[in-house]
Design a binder for these strands. Structure first.
Lengths: 261, 261
DNA sequence: GGAAGAGGTTGATCTGCGTCAAGAAAGTGT
DNA sequence: ACACTTTCTTGACGCAGATCAACCTCTTCC
């Protein structure tokens, strides 16, 4: 349950690097969205002061209430952000994928918890190192702003799902969301592949049934029953606890917006 | 229904201004959160290029799908952000108060609609003027980032409310939220005042019953019934369509977190 | 002052999802 | 291959909140 922290030294390398920019030899963060806006020297600085956090599936990355001492960029894997009430109810309030920023640089203590939905690898900075980087790279701040605005819009999209959609629409929305985030060419799920012949997605879900229910504001039994319905409609196929094949993404998308019976 | 746009020239004035900084003579934006980070010259530039948008209660400020041509800072009033689905369901995905940033600077078209929940006054910038301001004032970008992170956290708090709370808890949460935002010393509601003798809040709600239901993911009838319950418990008192007196904020806060029967 | 409309309340009934309980399947360690 | 644990599925039943419908309370406008 304890997060394994694996600090590492980054070496700068120019091998196989068209633009000639400095990049992290270990994780290749150069073209990551969150690193756009870093000057060459800023990139080099980032490589020097960053360290790595590797957390296995199910591990806790940070806990609500703990003091904020670092932030980072997700290199690979899926992170779930969780809010918990005093009586134990939990709501997943966000899923973060590779390239996305993770942190609350203006808060004293974390306002939510983060856990590894899959095995996760994060490129981290201490609060101080991060502030320095921000101060010296104005365009980097812009990239962070863009990331935050994107997350904000995603959160608001999900508010609509939580407040106004039926259980069936919710699950359909989730599956469309997963297919779009983890589809061909994307990173973050195990065994993902684009299969020809109508199969839009074939891979593993980054969340268990319990986690899906926590994301959708439903109970696990309801999620299970909705999966059964979608299977009966021939839209998806499941195997084991996390295996999923999306057989008809277009129809699923329609269902998620209730544009058919 | 059409937004009244009231462009105006700003004059710089130093009268009664301790720090001697330039400020907008019309709206006094100098100390607004979103203007922190502007240099003196940046402040002067902001005053020159900004214009004013005044929208009466119920008016549309911007429409989902329309091209993004401006952004701004709310000077006074309450703005509701709305997502609408193709079949007409609506969800309020955010309430914005005075001092908060309004805009989606990285989007081509608006991802949501905004309407005036009360009479609203906005200090606006064209996209181009805004980008220039951002580019020339690095710390201003930081203030925007802080605003965005704050909105993101607020959205996530509300995701918990939508996904996990009962109708009673939802309404209690809303009333606590309103009391905290529009309480004594805050701006944005009509006739707000702090009353001694156990009354935590006495003023007007910025939302109609219909809007409250759209914010809480409920139907108007349910909101009405929950108001009745809270009145029976002696926690609030209502008068007319928007009048509200919060008689026991502590108890309401407990109710919103279900820490009592 | 009364007609018309908008917004809110109240009651009766229905239903989608939650709750409770049992069991099956998948995953894990020996 | 086995036992053991965790996770998921399925069924029976109940209830919170939705739905439908009637009525009430303002406001406004003639």
């Amino acid at each position: 349950m304890t997060a394994k922290c694996a600090p590492h030294r980054h070496s700068s390398s120019r091998s196989g690097n068209r633009s000639g920019k400095v990049e992290c030899a270990y994780c290749g963060v150069r073209d990551k969205a969150a690193c756009r806006g870093l000057s060459d020297s800023g990139q080099a600085e980032a490589n020097t002061v960053s360290y790595r956090k590797v957390v296995p599936q199910g591990g806790v990355i940070l806990r609500e209430g703990d003091p904020v001492a670092w932030c980072g960029v997700i290199v690979s894997g899926v992170v779930k952000l969780v809010k918990t009430s005093s009586d134990g109810r939990q709501q997943i309030v966000g899923l973060q994928f590779g390239d996305e920023f993770l942190g609350q640089p203006f808060e004293q203590s974390w306002r939510l918890s983060a856990e590894a939905a899959t095995d996760v690898d994060i490129c981290c900075f201490s609060q101080g190192a991060f502030d320095g980087l921000r101060g010296r790279n104005p365009a980097f701040e812009g990239a962070l702003l863009q990331d935050a605005m994107g997350s904000l819009d995603a959160a608001r999209d999900w508010m609509f799902v939580l407040g106004r959609k039926t259980a069936e629409e919710k699950l359909a929305s989730f599956l469309v969301f997963i297919a779009e985030r983890l589809g061909p060419g994307k990173s973050g799920a195990k065994g993902v592949q684009h299969v020809t012949g109508g199969v839009a997605f074939d891979g593993e879900l980054p969340l268990s049934r319990t986690e899906i229910s926590q994301f959708l504001g439903l109970r696990i039994e309801t999620v299970s029953r909705q999966f059964k319905k979608l299977k009966a409609l021939g839209l998806v196929d499941t195997s084991g606890n996390r295996g999923i094949r999306i057989l008809n993404l277009d129809r699923l998308r329609e269902l998620s917006e209730s544009e058919l019976a």
